[in-house]
Every structure is written in C-alpha cells, then in structure tokens.
Design a protein around this nucleic acid. Structure first.
Length: 581
RNA sequence: GCGCCCGUAGCUCAGCUGGAUAGAGCGCGAGACUUCUAAUCUUGAGGUCGCAGGUUCGACCCCUGCCGGGCGCGCCA
C-alpha cells in the first residue's frame, strides 16, 4: 500500500492535533475521551465541506461551554493551509471549507492508491471471526440461507478492508439427530440403488433426489452388505459419507455466490474433544449450570409433557424466560450445550466474534451470549461477541409470492436463483436493505434494466465510465492530472462525494453494516449519471471535448477515479464491476 | 402469555451509533427529449418519523408504556 494519506484520515489527524495543542496550552484537560468526536461532511453542503462536533462533545467533560471551546479550536484549525474558512455554527459545530487544491490532491490519492483507496488500518490487525451460513449439512443451500450468506461474506470482506484479520467460519452441525435422519435417508436410497423398490419416501426422512449420488457410491463400494444389516452397523459410516457429500454440494452452491469459507468446524469433533464437558464443569463450579426441572413451554399445551431433571443453564439471569438445558435426558448434548463450548473455543483465538443468524434463531441470542460472556470472562479472555440477525426474505414473482412446498422438499434452491438472475444481482439485492428488516425479492424486478434497479444503476455507471475511457483512448485522449485545475464546480461535487468513501468504510465496518456500502454506491452512481446527463444537452460538459485535449484529460482522469471507487465498493460486496452492459 | 425484529412521503426504502431546515427512487403534477453520452432528463407538490410520556443544550435515533405487522418460544436445529 502506497503511503498516501486520504483527506478523511488527514483531517481526523488535524482535529486530533488541534485538540492536542489545546491540551498543551491548558485550554482542554488531558485524557478526555474523544471516541465521539466526528469529522464528517455536513448534511447541508451550504454549511461547508467538513464539520466537526468536537467542541460540543468535549465541552461538557471539559467543564467549559461549546462555543468557547469551538473558538479555541477554530484558531488552531485556521492555521492549516488547506482550510480556507472555519466558522462556528449552531450550538457549536465547526464548519470547515477546504481549498479546492486539496480536493484535487484527493483525486490523485485515489489514482495512487487505486484498489487500496478506502482501505483502513482501523481494525489494527485484530482477529475477527465471522461465522455465517452454518446451515445443517443435510441438503443443498436454499433461498432461506442466501441472505445471511451474502451479508456475512460482505461483512467479512469489509472488515478485512478496514484493517482486521478475518476468519470466515462455517459451523457444521454434524452431531445432532438431523444427521442421523440424513444417514437413514441415504440408506433408503442405497437400497433403491441396489434395485429395491422403496416407494414413497417415509415422512420423517429427507426425500430429495440429491441423496441419490452418494447412495449410489455407497452401493458401488459396499454392494448389498448393509441392506439388511442393523442400523448400528452402518449408521456411522453412512452418516460420515452423507455429511461429506452434502458439504461438497454446499461448498459448490456457495461458490456460485463467490463465497468461500476459511474454516469448516465440526460439531462432532468439538464433542469428541470433550469441549462441552469442560464448559459444563466451569459453569457448574460457578453456579451457572445446575440440575433442575424444565418448565413446560409457555403459550402452547403439550399433552405428553413430563418434567425431567436436566442440567440447566441459568439463562433467566440474563433475561431469558426460562433456564435452558445443555444436555438431553439421554445424556447427549443439546445444540445449545455444544454451541456455547464452540463459541468459547472460537474466543480463544479470535479478538472478536460475529455471528450471522437467521431470524428464526433470534430467540436463542440471549442465552448463548450470556453463556459465552460468562465463560470468556471466567477464563480472563472476555471478547466482544455480536450476533447479527438477518430477517426473512419473501420470494415474489411479479408481486405474487412464490409457492414453496415443504412436504416434497421442493424448495427454491440457491443454485436455481443464481442461475436465473445471476450472482451479482443476488448479492447486491441482498445488501440493499438493512439486514434486520424483512425484504422482498421479486424475480421480475431484480433483473430490470432501468434506474429503479440499484444493481443495474451502479453497474451501469461503471460500464459508462469504462466505455467513455475506451472511446477517449480511440480518439487519442488519455486521463491526465496535468490540468486538474480546469475542473469546475460540478466536477468538484463529484470528487467530494467520492472522498467520503474512506470514512464510509470505517463507519460501515465499525457498525458491521455492509449495506451502507451498497447505498453509498447507489448515491455515487446517481451523481455520476446526473453529471453525465448534463452533457446530453451541452456537449461542452461532456467528458470528451474533442477540441480541448487538456480539459478532456482532466475529466477522463476524474472519470477513471470515480470508476475506481465504484469498483472498490463493488469488490467489497462481491459484485463484479462490468466493463460494458 | 413471553422474547426478538420492524413501523419514516400514496408505495418501496435510506437516514452515517444523539446534531443544523428528515432524504432517495417509484407513483402523481408540469415541462423537455424521439436519442447510442442508449437502456430517459429537468422541475414541483407531497411528512404529527405508529401513538403517548420521559431523558438533555439538542431525539427518527436512547428509556418506559401502549398500538399494528413479522419471526420465534420442547430435551428440535
């Protein structure tokens, strides 16, 4: 990475330096928390290029009033050569105007940093573990998994770009009852592969045809050895083979979306290593697990409910409505029991944990966070642990809900959707809504080629730029920073919007919200299109002005940098920046 | 019954961790364009930020209580 400071980083530094100066002069006490000091463009551009709330945030802890502090800050900031004016507004905002040469310098910074423009050291190399997808290995990926997969993957990329070291992890639930059902389902298909007429697949088993290939392999390898054998003889083998086959399929499905995990962690291995026992032991020693009776579930009546004594985690202490079992009555671990040990294990190597979960698991957030917080605190390795919930996606076709039949296992697969609308459309669309809000995904709308469609709009902006650069090259014009001073106010506005990219990256990463990148790109594309449209009626406002090579060079240089920004942003979302459409 | 999420323009949604006069697209009104700088453009109207309190210099944002919608609530995963 080239050593070029972006305007955003430079001004964060300038404000900090000004505050340091005030501390040295005794105007400001030492050691104030500056975490809430922000430097950002004011909402109303008429107020200036940059604004800081430093005086308002620090006035109270400093025991002074905002305007007095602001005046002292302004005195420092006006010393900077690139600051043309610094005014105090409202309750104590400081509005700065930046010399246009600084914006042109920023444009050169984009060119110099290219794919690294916007990259941040904010994360300080901290190891963040992002766990996402983690679908049960019992079948292909379907649309229910899609949103979490895309959000998790984009978040992981974003965090990397913001200076974290990231592990993309998939937790494989290969130890529960569902993988036994999988093994039995494959056994049925195995008998079928050997010529037996198995008829309708039993209700409790997985009916999907995707089990046929692995069953055929087993048939070819073992012949009829296990046809009549008791389950105990084949279950372990069939289960292992089936899970392995399902994971191959799941990886292939995820690859269609450009998603590749670094680590697949096995629940069965975790249990074999005795991790849940260790966790239980500690929790018991600290009175967080006890043997008790589970209450009957609320809100519905269960006829055969019988209280039994189980090891329970005291989740009621943490806001849950009842204590939760970590083991079943047969002595095996519940999902929760294994999961808390799993997260504890992850916390041993990572500096922070982020899980992406579907809304159907939202009810279990409190208990797992409480258990993990207790375990990590107990070992002196308390780690931030966030769980991001992604809400349901309703599939529509021309406004009508897409029917899904659960009975036959006839769900809409991720592969089908990617095949129909393409990877880029799926990924971008999943990111044009904050994850905690429900969303509609209309097959008809997401592929429309018009400005209502954000995917198209952003990709088109990039293609337009690339096409312009090609046309310019054909006519003998190359982007050049030799005469950037020829750029006018309209161009400057575009640069100012572009210069927000580094700040946006840090804010989005800190909030763990990759969708902000998508919305920013939509804004940037809109600004580019608007600028372009002026040239429709006024040829002298086009990027290529044949009789003015100097101006054309400067405008193409601007175009190239905006294109670079869009490309960088799309890369974070895992969407291709196309050359033409 | 309980928990979590959502509620912002007619519709679909943003709103940068509490900042300045709450934004965009669609739709609607008015005008322009008949085109490869193509897959439209310009402009206007449109708001009790679900409701009611509270916290403070300041609230769409935080707290409490309601209302409406979604998801979930067995030792399943």
């Amino acid at each position: 990475m080239t050593d070029v400071a972006t305007l955003h980083a430079a001004f964060a530094g300038h404000i900090a330096a000004a505050l340091d100066a005030l501390e040295a002069a005794g105007t400001l006490p030492h050691g104030l928390n500056r975490a809430n000091v922000a430097v950002e463009p004011p909402r109303d551009p008429a107020h200036g290029d940059l604004a800081t709330n430093a005086a308002m945030v620090l006035a109270k802890p400093a025991g002074t009033n905002p305007r007095a502090l602001a005046e002292a800050l302004v005195a420092e900031l006006t010393k900077l050569p690139e600051v043309t004016s610094a005014d105090i507004a409202g309750p104590g905002f400081i509005n700065l105007r930046i010399d246009r040469s600084a914006w042109l310098t920023e444009l050169r910074a984009i060119a110099a940093l290219a794919g690294d423009y916007g990259r941040s050291t904010m994360g300080g190399g901290k190891m963040v573990n992002v766990e996402y997808v983690s679908a049960n290995p019992t079948g292909p990926m379907h649309m229910g998994h899609c949103r979490g997969a895309v959000v998790g993957d984009a978040l992981a990329t974003l965090l990397e770009f913001a200076g974290h070291r990231v592990t993309r992890e998939y937790y494989v639930n290969d130890a529960g009852g569902q993988v036994d059902v999988l093994a039995r389902s494959v056994h049925l298909r195995y008998r079928e592969a050997l010529g037996e007429a198995v008829g309708e697949v039993h209700e409790g088993l997985y009916p999907g045809d995707y089990l046929v290939p692995v069953a055929q392999e087993l048939a070819a390898e073992f012949g009829d050895k296990y046809v009549a054998a008791p389950e105990s003889e084949w279950l372990v083998t069939f289960r292992a083979r089936a899970v392995a086959a399902m994971l191959v399929m799941i990886r292939a499905d995820l690859a269609l979306l450009g998603i590749h995990h670094d680590l697949f962690s096995s629940e069965a291995e975790l249990q074999a290593a005795g991790k849940p026992e260790q966790a239980e032991q500690w929790l018991r020693a600290h009175d967080l697990v006890y043997d008790g009776q589970l209450e009957a579930p609320k809100g519905k009546t269960i006829e055969d409910w019988e209280p039994v004594e189980l090891p329970l985690f005291r989740s009621t202490r943490f806001g849950d409505d009842q204590d939760r079992p970590i083991k079943k009555s047969d002595g095996s671990w519940t999902y929760f029991g294994a999961d808390l040990a799993y997260h504890f294990q992850k916390a041993e190597t990572a500096d922070a944990l982020v899980d992406i979960w579907g809304a159907d698991h939202a009810g279990t957030v409190k208990r797992i966070k409480a258990a993990v917080a207790a375990l990590t605190a107990g070992s002196g390795k308390e780690k931030p642990f966030e769980i991001k919930i992604v809400q349901m996606v309703q599939l529509l076709r021309n406004g009508e809900p897409v029917k899904m039949s659960k009975r036959s296992g006839n769900f809409v697969t991720l592969a089908d959707v990617v095949q129909e609308v393409g990877k880029d459309v799926v990924r971008f669309t999943m990111l044009t809504r904050k994850p905690e809000a429900q969303m509609d995904f209309d097959f008809a709308k997401v592929v429309e080629a018009n400005k209502d469609n954000p995917v198209f709009y952003v990709q088109y902006a990039h293609a337009r730029i690339r096409s312009t650069l090609r046309k310019g090259a054909e006519a003998g014009f190359a982007p050049s920073d030799a005469a950037l001073e020829r750029l006018g106010e309209e161009e400057l506005e575009l640069i100012k919007l572009g210069a927000q990219f580094p700040r946006l990256i840090e804010a989005a990463a800190a909030a763990r919200e990759p969708h902000r990148v998508a919305f920013y790109l939509y804004d940037l594309a809109g600004a580019l299109h608007a600028y372009w449209n002026v040239g429709n009626d006024r040829p002298e406002k086009r990027f290529i002005v044949a009789q003015d090579a100097q101006l054309t060079g400067a405008r193409l240089y601007l175009a190239a940098q905006i294109g670079q920004l869009i490309k960088n942003g799309l890369a974070l979302l895992g969407v291709e920046a196309v050359e033409e459409m």
